[in-house]
């Protein structure tokens, strides 16, 4: 199938992009890497009147590296992260996750911000950035705001971003030297959508323990009491956590999420 008709603009600046989006209203859509939107357009499941291509905006390609955090431009590609071309404050988690996203040809085009804004529940960055408690800098017609990724996703393919807002960058806290992380993704073959994701980060120096379940029906599930995962009867606990995350016991989804969580925790050791 071929995409329906749309207009296309490639603004030179973020300000121009925001203006185009505002003028376009609900029928304007941001095109970042296009690796998720492209298929949706071809299947005619997305039908925007206007695409605003932000992939090359300089404001979205800048990265910063300071003592506490790293800020990655939203248009940084998965491949750039995989290859270590941008700073990684997580001792390798980002590169590891990036390498597992789709396929290299997709990673060369797909962007961090695009993936977050697309909010596919089975996608990796949404889960990873919630795990790391990353923050987004979001630009809109009325200025900028900062948003926790945890507050971004409202449901499958649905976020709290207004149609005329653009993710500019993602700020990731720097993990301490002795921080540990674990990321377990269950998918049926490489590049396929995840059936279940679980991720844990333990950063004692910063007093941080976070654990997240991904590939949920909607937003990633932040496990309320992650400390409990670090000791105790993990089997019963994992099952209980997954039940509380919304999956009914004795379902496939429940089983694979519970196993994935157990394996993620085991991987932390």
């Amino acid at each position: 199938m071929k995409a329906p008709h749309f207009e296309y603009e490639k603004p030179a600046t973020l300000a121009d992009a925001l203006r185009l989006l505002s003028a376009g209203g609900d029928n304007a859509k941001v095109l970042a890497g296009g690796q998720s939107l492209g298929p949706l357009l071809n299947l005619r499941m997305a039908r925007p009147d206007l695409l605003v291509d932000i992939r090359t905006l300089p404001e979205l390609r800048a990265c910063e590296d300071d003592a506490d955090s790293v800020t990655l431009g939203a248009a940084v590609t998965h491949a750039a992260i995989e290859d270590g071309q941008v700073p990684d404050p997580t001792h390798g988690l980002l590169a590891r996750v990036a390498q597992g996203i789709a396929y290299r040809a997709v990673r060369n085009r797909g962007t961090l911000g695009g993936s977050l804004a697309h909010a596919d529940p089975a996608a990796d960055w949404v889960t990873t950035m919630v795990l790391l408690d990353a923050e987004l800098r979001v630009a809109g017609a009325d200025g900028e705001r900062v948003l926790r990724v945890e507050d971004l996703v409202e449901g499958p393919l649905s976020t709290c971003l207004a149609p005329d807002e653009i993710i500019v960058s993602v700020r990731l806290p720097r993990l301490s030297a002795d921080a540990r992380w674990s990321y377990y993704k269950f998918n049926r073959k490489p590049g396929e959508f995840a059936e279940a994701i679980a991720a844990v980060v333990h950063d004692p120096a910063r007093g941080v323990v976070r654990a997240v379940l991904g590939a949920m029906e909607g937003a990633p599930h932040v496990i309320p009491d992650p400390h409990a995962l670090l000791g105790g009867d993990i089997d019963a606990l994992a099952a209980d956590i997954v039940t509380r995350s919304g999956f009914a016991p004795d379902t496939y989804e429940h089983r694979v999420h519970a196993v994935t969580l157990r394996r993620a925790v085991a991987g932390l050791a």
């Binding site: 298929p39 073959k189 490489p190």
Partner: peptide
């Protein structure tokens, strides 16, 4: 199943 993401063909890893 209407895409190759739903209809899964074996790849080199399978």
């Amino acid at each position: 199943a209407s895409t190759l993401a739903d209809y899964m063909l074996p790849g080199a890893t399978e």
